[in-house]
């Protein structure tokens, strides 16, 4: 029999619950529990609940792997089109998917959290700004299109990047004006457009970490957003439009900024 006086710590009790103790220490814990009925009851409950949790999840584990998760299928769809997030627009605008967080993985599994994809963060900022200001009737913009030159000069100065207002008239959208917003660690600019029916579209720009990325599509309620990162800035185009309607506009905006940076 093992010495009953050996100290039994909580760690060892947990290891007992997990059935990870070798024979000698397990015997010691069992002896300790035999002498402490209250503790024995608690540990017995914890063991039982651990077993319950396992059996509750057995059915999930036994399910066949769905086709969309088969590695061969995932590989086949990689680079062409992603079911969610990245789109084949990447190919259209000829920029590369470049893992901004790739370096993280080079360090193995130690770090605590994975940074949120910068494009996702830009898309969120853009959608929040869209939701806030697109419903605004009295003051949808801070500076109107009448002062376009002043607006663009002011926003360019605050962003630290020359900002032009892309011409979206071929899509039926005309510039209304723009405003300055807090965004990330600095400032963000929002340009607002509307069409004949009063639908509003915004272009959102802010400095951001990360390298060039493909377009990221995101839909929240009525509003769709395409976001991307180019030369240290995050861009997003948001409108109450379908993905198919918005994509050519996003491409036009991408080309517009690319040529003028």
């Amino acid at each position: 029999m093992t010495d009953r006086n050996l100290p039994i710590g909580e760690d060892e009790l947990q290891a007992f619950v997990d059935e990870r103790l070798d024979g000698e220490r397990r015997a010691a814990v069992e002896a300790h529990l035999a002498a402490h009925p209250d503790l024995a009851e608690r540990i017995g409950t914890e063991r039982r609940q651990r077993a319950m949790l396992r059996s509750r999840l057995d059915a999930k584990f036994a399910e066949p792997i769905p086709a969309r998760l088969r590695i061969a299928n995932l590989r086949a769809t990689r680079r062409t089109s992603r079911a969610r997030g990245w789109t084949s627009a990447a190919a259209a605008v000829a920029i590369f998917v470049c893992g901004a967080t790739a370096g993280w993985f080079a360090n193995g599994i130690a770090p605590a959290s994975l940074p949120i994809a910068p494009t996702a963060s830009v898309a969120h900022g853009a959608q929040a700004a869209y939701r806030t200001f697109v419903v605004e009737v009295a003051h949808p913009v801070e500076v109107g299109v009448q002062q376009e030159a002043h607006l663009l000069q002011w926003l360019s100065k605050r962003l630290g990047r020359k900002l032009a207002a892309p011409d979206l008239s071929s899509f039926g959208y005309r510039l209304m004006g723009g405003r300055l917003l807090p965004g990330g660690s600095g400032a963000a600019a929002q340009l607002m457009y509307d069409d004949a029916s009063g639908r509003r579209l915004t272009i959102y720009v802010r400095a951001t970490e990360g390298t060039e990325t493909a377009f990221r599509f995101q839909r929240e309620g009525e509003a769709s957003t395409f976001a991307w990162i180019d030369q240290g800035f995050g861009f997003a185009v948001t409108a109450p439009a379908s993905r198919e309607e918005l994509l050519p506009i996003a491409e036009a905006v991408y080309r517009g900024f690319d040529g003028k940076s």
Binding site: L57, K60, F61, E63, I65, P66, R68, L69, I71, L74, R75, R78, R82, A83, R84, G99, A102, F105
Partner: peptide, 28 residues
């Protein structure tokens, strides 16, 4: 899939999470 399902408690959302995980693993 078992871990993802226990976390998010929705079968489709769990498979989305697993798919994102596998895509990331493949790309890295």
């Amino acid at each position: 899939r078992r871990y993802a399902y226990a976390l998010v408690r929705d079968h489709d959302a769990a498979d989305d999470l697993v798919q994102d995980t596998l895509e990331r693993a493949l790309s890295r």
